[in-house]
């Protein structure tokens, strides 16, 4: 039952992230839900634990303009691109149950775009409450909306700067009851109260 409940939560998160992006007027590249968790070991075992935001789920839509995304791969050198393809092939093998990691695969041979890579690497990340873009949004309970390459590069936040390098031009973190919804786009998107209201409706599970 616990596994079924967990799966249900995953499915619900996925549906909500997808609804958020597919229903938006703006063109978002991806959405991630950073979920509030507590690390009892790091907290010293006193029952409190250290609060952090870890990967809850994510929905990657990609870029509508294939030409733009291909262009954004061109800055990556051949060695880096080969590394990305190898990782994709290994992950495919891992997920599909241990097939040969080096086997040729259409998806593994296709160039891995910068935003795909940024999304993929995000799965390995987490943020202590108050640190990084999601952590700051959650601690201060306020939306952070960075729009334009200059805003991302000059934010002083490593994740935003990394996103800018990978072609993002808008990065948004909207806090909810138990986590933070992050949206990224390769377009410049101005702040919208409509989007924040949608996040409030879709991701405040306590209500």
């Amino acid at each position: 039952p616990a596994a079924a409940q967990s799966r249900l939560n995953e499915d619900t998160l996925q549906q909500r992230l997808q609804a958020l992006i597919e229903g938006a007027r703006e063109t978002w590249t991806y959405a991630i839900y950073w979920q509030l968790s507590y690390d009892s070991i790091a907290g010293g075992g006193d029952g409190e634990g250290t609060a952090f935001l870890g990967w809850g789920d994510g929905y990657y839509k990609g870029e509508e303009d294939k030409g733009k995304s291909k262009k954004r791969c061109s800055s990556v050198n051949a060695v880096e691109q080969e590394h990305r393809k190898r990782v994709i092939r290994e992950l495919n093998a891992l997920i599909s149950g241990g097939a040969v990691a080096g086997a040729a695969d259409d998806a593994g041979d296709e160039e891995v775009t910068d935003t795909e890579w940024f999304f993929l690497v995000s799965m390995t990340q987490s943020f202590l409450n108050g640190t990084g873009l999601p952590g700051q949004a959650f601690l201060h309970c306020r939306t952070i909306w960075l729009s334009g390459s200059g805003a991302l590069a000059g934010s002083g936040c490593e994740r935003a700067q990394q996103g800018q390098i990978y072609g993002l031009r808008t990065l948004v973190c909207i806090p909810s009851d138990n986590g933070v919804v992050e949206l990224g786009s390769t377009d410049v998107i101005q702040q919208s109260s409509d989007l924040m209201e949608k996040v409030n409706t879709l991701f405040n599970f306590n209500n």
Binding site: L91, L94, A101, E110, E116
Partner: peptide
Amino acid sequence: ITAVGLPQARKASLARFLEKRKERVTST
């Protein structure tokens, strides 16, 4: 990122991402 280093709990997200990527690649 390495395949072996990915936490178990994130495999569902990863599987979805890879599956959709396959669909995108084969549709072009």
